[in-house]
Amino acid sequence: MVTVKLLKPYYIKTDEQTVRVVLAYQYFTLLINQRVFQFIPIEEKEIRVSRENGKIENIHDRFAFQNGKTVIYMSLVELISAPNFLNHLHSIAQPYIQSEETKSVTLKEETEQIIKVLEERNLKRMIDQALDERNKVLFDQLVKLL
């Protein structure tokens, strides 16, 4: 039986598409058959999570764990099957992953900003048209709206 005893990132690196959870000694330990194995960075040392959907991108990468002279290699696919691995990983990556609500709010704000700019440009065009037509009454009304 494999369980995660400790999973803390050494540091977290983000870009537009990915959250990279970088691991180091003593920050990632497993309990395998009642023996504690510590992560050692001899193969892979990071877990990549998509910021868009929260899925692990490098599931086939292998990680090494050591207890004394015994070294065990496990892929992320195997680690995902551990009961609490995903809970630990998602609690680390969640603040960096865009939720549907965040995307919706951001999209709504961007849409409102675009509409505001377009309305302002339209109003300026209408003011120009009123000037071209020498319509002082319409001009005065439109300037008040600006």
Rank of each mutant, 00 (worst) to 15 (best):
V49S: 03
Q94F: 11
P83F: 00
S91I: 05
F28E: 03
V117H: 05
R20V: 06
T70M: 04
L118Q: 13
P95S: 04
E52K: 13
N84C: 12
K13Y: 02
N122E: 13
Y73N: 12
V49C: 05
Q26A: 13
R125N: 15
Q129W: 14
P83T: 00
R125F: 15
K5V: 06
I92W: 08
N58H: 05
R121H: 11
G68K: 04
L138M: 09
N67F: 02
H88A: 10
S81V: 14
P83W: 00
V143Q: 13
V71Q: 09
S91Q: 11
Q94E: 14
L23F: 00
N135Y: 07
A93R: 04
N87D: 12
S75H: 08
L79T: 08
D15Y: 03
T106K: 10
Y27A: 09
I47S: 11
I80A: 09
N67K: 02
S104I: 01
I97N: 04
F63P: 05
K103S: 12
V21P: 07
I42C: 04
R62E: 15
S91K: 08
H90W: 06
T3V: 06
Y10W: 14
Q129E: 13
R35E: 07
T18I: 14
N122W: 05
I56N: 02
G68D: 06
T70L: 14
F28T: 04
E52T: 02
D132S: 06
Y10K: 06
D15L: 05
N84K: 04
I42D: 10
V77S: 00
M74H: 10
P95K: 10
Q34C: 11
V137L: 15
H60N: 12
E100F: 07
K136L: 10
F85K: 00
L145P: 05
S75M: 04
T102G: 06
F37T: 01
L145C: 15
F63H: 05
Q94C: 10
F65K: 01
E101S: 06
E46W: 12
P41Q: 04
Q26S: 14
T111C: 09
L131T: 00
Y10G: 01
I12V: 13
I127L: 05
R62A: 12
M1W: 10
L7A: 07
